[in-house]
Design a protein around this nucleic acid. Structure first.
Lengths: 263, 263
DNA sequence: CGACCTGTTGAGCAGCCTCAACATAAGTGG
DNA sequence: CCACTTATGTTGAGGCTGCTCAACAGGTCG
């Protein structure tokens, strides 16, 4: 038996946006591909890109990609699988700071201090491209647009963190979970994966920790959602039956309405 | 009467780390200076730097530096004064995402989408350097180390956001306020300003909003801190009488113990 | 098969919010 | 300069959301 995976219900070749063979990630928005393709759609420097995409590693469930405080050497582009990142306080309280799926980059916030400032752990069998920072720097020097891509990626990550701050500061338990489900759904959709039917790779405890609520509250709210026929639930399998309604509950703007204006 | 300022108790020339005349910000860690000085300590390109630092603007209390959704054109380096940034939900709930003082950069998270994703408003009379993004890009092209500096700055901002996420997700009201006071104190200290005696430029409501607690709770906890002789309080004036104890309450590691290791 | 991990549901409790009244300071106009 | 309004801060009382503790169910693994 393989370990729990996002989207085990779907066929393998589509799973997490990675095709079977050695072909690159199919999604325009993904990891190294995203990093190495200039925004104008031209081709990046093939040799360096090839070199980087060959640095593949597999992590099994529970393996650490990197650990808090350790020296920064690489950033990681997830090819398939999923990863959680978290930090903690001296007394042992832990805060999950993010779940990361195919196409996302990890470790960028270590650039400043040259040390990882969170811990990254695989939630399931996960394939990544490891990109040594010196290689990345060389890449940047050889190709100005890549530097700009990195800025864009970091800028986007900062936006996501702001959304999380809004969630933690102002939303109640129902809104938090609705927001979470819709956010996950949209990320899957961006990767051309089924946005309304998937398997969670993280536990209820992880979800609750991330959202700043207790594991039990996660269960209760999800049960309520199921009662109200907003979702269908079987352990880690979930189907969104009313994504629009969930977005409404979560206070998440429709994609199109994102650029709403001020008075 | 001038409006409330951080540190009105101190003499003007030291106020917020800006000297009286046209001399640059005195603090090594500050805004444009930080942006334009390569990490090796050499001099940046004088002409472009000069050009940029001449783009000065003054904002009065309540003025907007930029507004949510508006097209991104500039980033802002604060020279003196202070600014709050915030976002909101459709139903009007607002989340303050940060308070920013001299030496900090605003607007970097708009790079990705070319639109500002938060609103920035002066808390008091505030002097900034406005840096048009095209000028910044030119600067980056002419000087590779500046690009790296921007990466560092963004990386650091991401760390601060992670700390806020930890606070919002896991700390109680007392811990939040203690963390807040210590954080502010340390930022002032970095700018060679009195770390234990200052005037807050933000209201109790703003503080509570930022920390995810009610205004009334802010008052109550601060009153309790005063009773316990941890602080001295007179409206917006505050003196930290036991910063070590506050750091302990807030679960904030001592600066020296920051690189604590994992097992 | 038993041990263990994860998830679910219930009961009681508490931290913080809400609402409200009031105090103090700041701003405004005569 | 004072009366008035407005903004901000403080304190109290009561209520609610979500937490804690606990028991148990279902799946997984050695």
């Amino acid at each position: 038996m393989r370990s729990a995976m996002l989207l085990t219900e779907l066929d393998d070749s589509a799973c997490l946006g990675v095709s079977r063979g050695d072909t690159p990630i199919a999604c325009k928005d993904c990891g190294v591909y995203q990093l190495c393709l200039p925004p104008d759609g031209g081709e990046a420097d093939g040799s360096i890109l090839d070199q980087i995409t060959k640095n593949r590693r597999i992590f099994k469930r529970g393996d650490y990609l990197f650990r808090l405080g350790h020296p920064f050497h690489s950033i990681y582009a997830i090819r398939s699988g999923s990863v959680k990142t978290y930090i903690w306080m001296d007394d042992g309280r832990v805060q999950v700071t993010g779940f990361h799926i195919a196409g996302e980059l990890l470790g960028l916030n270590a650039i400043n201090s040259k040390r990882y400032h969170c811990e990254a752990r695989a939630l399931e069998t996960t394939s990544v491209c490891e990109i040594p920072f010196d290689q990345l720097e060389a890449l940047v020097r050889s190709n100005l647009s890549i530097q700009y891509q990195i800025l864009r990626i970091m800028s986007r990550e900062m936006l996501q963190n702001q959304e999380l701050i809004l969630l933690l500061g102002k939303k109640n338990a129902e809104e938090r979970l609705a927001t979470y489900l819709i956010g996950l759904s949209r990320r899957l959709e961006q990767r051309h994966l089924s946005p309304c039917e998937f398997n969670l790779s993280m536990s209820r405890g992880d979800i609750g920790n991330y959202l700043g609520i207790a594991e039990e509250t996660v269960c209760r709210v999800l049960s309520r959602f199921e009662e109200e026929e907003l979702i269908e639930l079987r352990r880690r399998y979930i189907r969104l039956r009313a994504p629009g309604r969930l977005a409404q509950i979560g206070g998440v703007a429709e994609c199109a309405a994102r650029e709403s204006q001020v008075g």
